[in-house]
Computed example of a mutant assay.
Amino acid sequence: MNFRDAYSDDYNSEDTEKIEIKKLEVEEEPLDPKIAEAIFCFNKKWKTGISLLESEGIITQDKKSIANFLFKYNDKLSKSELGEILAGKDDNVELLIEFTELLNFTGVSFAEGLRSYLTKFLLPGEAQKISRMMEVFAGKYLKDNPTTFPDTDCAFILAFALIMLNTDAHNPAILEKDKMTKAQFVQNSRGTWHGNDPPQELLEMLYDEIVGNEIQMKTKGDPDKKGWVKSIKGSLFEQNKRWLCLIGNELRWYKNPTRGRPEDPEKPLGYIKLEYVMVNEMDDRFCISSTLPKNIEFYVYEEKKPVAVTTLQFEITCESAAQVEHWAAAVRKNVTFEVEPEFDPKHYKKPKSKAKNFKKTKKF
C-alpha cells in the first residue's frame, strides 16, 4: 500500500476500526480481585502496580509479558502512568516496542494511525521522550505499510511535524492570523526526505486531517475534548458560540477558551451530566436526550449557583458535519450507566423546570 491508497477517496473514519489488538481480546468478565487491586495501585503509581502483578505471578519481568498486560487492560489503566512507564529511561525502549507491536496499522492512514496510538497513553512533556515514542511509532507504521515512506527516519520526521501542527492548529492561545497555513506546512516539510520533498498531495491531506480533527493529546486534568461550537440550546434556554469541555461524564460550556480545570480563572456557564443519556446526530447538530422515560436535566449558573432546567433534548449546533461527528463520538464514549438512576416509573410525573429566569429565550 502506498500513501495514495491510504489517502484515497474511499478512505473514511471507519478505517480506524482496523486498528485493533492483534493478539489479545479484552475480557468482559468481572476482573479478578488481584488484577483489580493491581490496576488500582498502578493508577496511583505504576511501579507499585507492576510490583504487585509480579508478586502475584500475573506477569513476569519479561517486557513482552508486561506489554501484554498494559495493552489488555489499557482502558482501565491511568493514561498518565502508562505514558511514564512506556516512555522509559534513557534509550530503553524495549517495553515501548513490545507494546507498539500489539497494534496493527495495516491499511490505516498515517494521521489516523498516530491518532489511535496517542489514545493508548498520555504523551509525556519532555521532547526526548516524545522523540523516542514517535520513532517507535514510525518504525511500526512503516513495518505495517512498507511502501508509504522511504524509511523510518522520514516517517519519524513527519510524525513529529504533525504533533507540532496539531498544537499550533488547536491551541486557543494562538490567534487565527498566527496559525500555520497549509502552504507554510508544505514549505516547512520540504527537503525532509533525505533532501527530497515529501509528496505535496500527502502533506496537504495530512494538514486537512489534523486541522479538521484535533488529535487529543491530554495532560493531567485536561478535558477529553474541547473546542468552539455554534450554539447550545435546551427548552427556552439558548446561547450562541460557546467553548465546550468534555470532562469525564460531564459536558460544560464557557464563554472563553479554557482547559476546564478548577484553578482556571474561566468558570463554566453551565453543564449537563452524561448519565443515562443517548446521542443522536443531525446535519449540523447533535442532540442529547434521556434513555429513561423522562426529560433530561441540565444546569445553568445563576449568581454562581447551578439552576436546574429540564428539556426533552439538549441540542448542540456545530460549524460542520465533521465537527458534529467528532463531538458526538466523544460524548457517546463518556456516557455512563453506573449510578443507579433516581427514578421510579410508577411514580413518574413530568418534571417542572426550576429555572424561573428562563421564561424567554436567552441569547448572548
Results as ranks from 00 to 15, higher is better:
Asn334Leu: 07
Met205Phe: 09
Leu86Ser: 00
Ser189Lys: 03
Lys218Gly: 05
Tyr299Arg: 08
Leu77Ile: 10
Asn196Gln: 13
Ile157Cys: 10
Asp208His: 11
Cys245Tyr: 02
Phe121Met: 14
Leu96Tyr: 07
Lys47Thr: 12
Ile59Trp: 03
Phe149Ser: 04
Glu302Val: 15
Asn171Ile: 00
Phe71Pro: 02
Thr48Arg: 12
Ile296Ala: 03
Gly49Gln: 01
Leu114Pro: 09
Asp62Gln: 12
Lys352Cys: 10
Val277Pro: 02
Lys349Tyr: 04
Pro293Ala: 06
Phe105Ser: 04
Lys273Cys: 07
Arg285Gly: 00
Ser131Arg: 12
Gln61His: 11
Ile59Asn: 07
Met180Arg: 08
Gly125Phe: 09
Pro198Ile: 02
Glu204Arg: 09
Ala155Thr: 05
Val229Trp: 08
Ile130Glu: 10
Ile50Gly: 08
Ser55Arg: 14
Cys41Gly: 00
Asn171Ala: 09
Arg132Thr: 05
Asn104Phe: 00
Ala169Ile: 06
Asp208Tyr: 00
Ala173Cys: 08
Ile163Ala: 04
Lys140His: 11
Glu250Lys: 15
Leu114Met: 12
Tyr348Lys: 10
Phe3Ala: 01
Ser8Leu: 06
Ile66Glu: 04
Gly234Pro: 06
Phe149Ala: 01
Tyr301Asn: 07
Thr148Lys: 04
Glu54Val: 11
Glu176Ile: 10
Phe69Arg: 06
Lys349Thr: 12
Ile130His: 03
Lys76Thr: 00
His194Pro: 06
Val307His: 07
Asp15Val: 07
Ala127Tyr: 09
Ile59His: 07
Lys233Tyr: 01
Tyr207Lys: 03
Leu244Ile: 15
Val277His: 04
Phe185Asp: 07
Ala161Ile: 02
Trp228Arg: 10
Met282Arg: 14
Ile50Tyr: 08
Lys129Arg: 13
Arg252Tyr: 07
Asn196Ser: 14
Lys267Ser: 14
Glu315Val: 13
Leu312Ile: 10
Val335Glu: 05
Thr148Cys: 15
Phe364Leu: 11
Gly195Lys: 03
Lys346Pro: 00
Ser353Glu: 05
Val136Pro: 04
